[in-house]
Design a protein around this nucleic acid. Structure first.
Length: 424
RNA sequence: GGAGAGGUGGCCGAGUGGUUGAAGGCGGCGGCCUCGAAAGCCGUUGUACGGCCUUGCCGUACCGAGGGUUCGAAUCCCUCCCUCUCCGCCA
């Protein structure tokens, strides 16, 4: 959530920011709701102050055993008025909050302005896409031939957009998870968290998933529980309604969770293989920082995610998303895109965002260094999407005979195995 | 699932209708004492919103959440949530 004061004091700047994001929010309507709330609140407070003064007087009279019936009778009417005004305040509050909850974060000044992905800015590239002396296969063909990816079984058990991993495929997924977590914990100083995979609606709202993106998430029937669409949701809410100590920052968490997404609106997109699934594993990086540190921490976090690809020897590039391509909560986002020979292109494998105080405001996460509590900044990034990393490993390390070389960094996690070959 | 107990300030813990934002203690901060520290003593110590003569003062709200009763609710009533104990069930 953005600061209401921005609407009151910096309306034009905010209007520009939202236009750049392609948002069609009617700020004048929000401004009016804000003014209305303040006016009604003031009225209610005035009357309540009067009521409080009278109540003290009644208390005094009673204490002195004097007659208070006149004062009490007079206050009956005031009491009714106060009730009516309080109702109005509640309505005004709710209306304003509803409006505020669907306003996206304002973009950082360093973000390229543009309508969509075409305006994204390439920051850097690492490694070189492999050259093959044969026509490379995609992960579907490779995985099926090796007997490690079973798409039919996935469809039979759970329907479209589910895949079953078998044997060394399952082992490879597990190896990747452990490898990523170990790297971030031992080398990058993150604390490992294993959060619940289901969260309350309040947690979804705190992380910015609700109310706007209810369609994107899976929910549990008849309960206020949602399957996490990303570990970002439980991690954000780990410190909901807390005031952290200033010297505890930055707090850095790394968490493995599955991510559940309905992928509503992406029908027909990436239907082949396991590039886009209803359920995929992800190791998530998350930070709570002081406001002045968040820009630098985003750079570090992104590099931490890149380290995984470098250790695995996978070529990638980093792009800054444009104002039109960024997510709802983000002020700035770097996407990391890994080279996929099966698609002959770079594909997103990580998204690293600085959400500034947007989530902190929604989830009420603050810290104290002087007197006043201040909102923290929150950052998140995939480090990395495990399923897509598995695809990248299989496709980039494929051999002409259809076997796959295991990257050296993963061998300790695969019992020393150097090559995945078809089981005969 | 059944039975019971409980949710109060950073923490512990009093408080069953009227100066209670809330006793007392711990912790924190400032001061005295000390060569320094500890101990001791004195003082101070929440958050949000709004207003103003804007380094402070004033108003309002907040005792799990939401409703209700009342001139007045931490205190009485209702609903919900959470925690703990015992039994049952279960990985």
């Amino acid at each position: 959530m953005i600061d209401v004061k921005l609407i009151r004091e910096n309306l034009d700047a905010l209007r520009t920011a939202l236009t750049n994001r392609g948002s069609d929010i009617n700020l004048d309507a929000v401004l009016e709701l804000e003014g209305k709330r303040r006016q009604v609140l003031h009225e209610a407070e005035q009357l309540r102050a009067e009521q409080n003064r009278a109540n003290d007087e009644i208390a005094r009279l009673k204490k002195n055993k004097e007659d208070a019936s006149g004062a009490i009778a007079a206050m009956k009417e005031v009491s009714q008025k106060v009730k009516a005004l309080e109702e109005k305040v509640r309505d005004a509050d709710n209306a304003l909050r509803e409006a505020m909850l669907i306003i996206p974060n304002t973009p950082d000044a360093s973000v390229p302005i543009g309508p969509d992905a075409s305006a994204n800015r390439l920051e850097r590239q690492w490694g070189t896409p492999p050259e093959f002396s044969f026509t490379p296969k995609d992960h579907v063909e490779l995985g099926e031939q090796l007997g490690i990816l079973d798409f039919e079984a996935g469809a039979k058990v759970s329907g479209a957009r589910f895949t079953v991993l078998r044997g060394l495929g399952a082992r490879l997924e597990r190896a990747l998870i452990s490898f990523m977590l170990d790297t971030h914990i031992n080398e990058h100083g993150y604390t490992e968290i294993l959060p619940p995979f289901m969260v309350l609606g309040a947690s979804m709202e705190g992380a910015g998933q609700l109310p706007k993106f209810a369609e994107e998430a899976f929910t549990i029937k008849d309960r206020d529980l949602w399957l996490v669409p990303t570990a970002e949701v439980p991690l954000t809410n780990l410190h909901r309604d807390e005031i952290l100590s200033g010297d505890a920052l930055p707090i850095c968490y790394a968490a493995y969770t599955p991510s559940f997404r309905s992928e509503a609106g992406s029908y027909g997109k990436d239907t082949r293989g396991m590039l886009r699934q209803h359920q995929f594993d992800k190791v998530e990086l998350y930070k709570f920082t002081a406001p002045e540190d968040s820009a630098e921490e985003l750079e570090k976090l992104t590099k931490n995610a890149e380290t995984i690809l470098q250790k695995l020897g996978l070529a990638y590039q980093v792009v800054t998303l444009s104002t039109g391509d960024m997510g709802f909560c983000a002020a700035k986002t770097y996407d990391i895109e890994v080279w996929l020979p099966g698609q002959n292109t770079y594909r997103e494998i990580s998204s690293c965002s600085n959400c500034t105080d947007f989530q902190a405001r929604r989830a009420n996460i603050r810290f104290r260094r002087d007197k006043k509590p201040e909102f923290v900044h929150t950052l998140n990034g995939s480090g990395l999407a495990v399923g897509r990393t598995l695809i990248a490993v299989i496709e980039n390390y494929q051999q002409e005979d259809g076997s796959v070389i295991v990257p050296e960094a993963l061998r300790p996690y695969m019992g020393g195995l150097e090559r995945i070959a078809a089981q005969t």
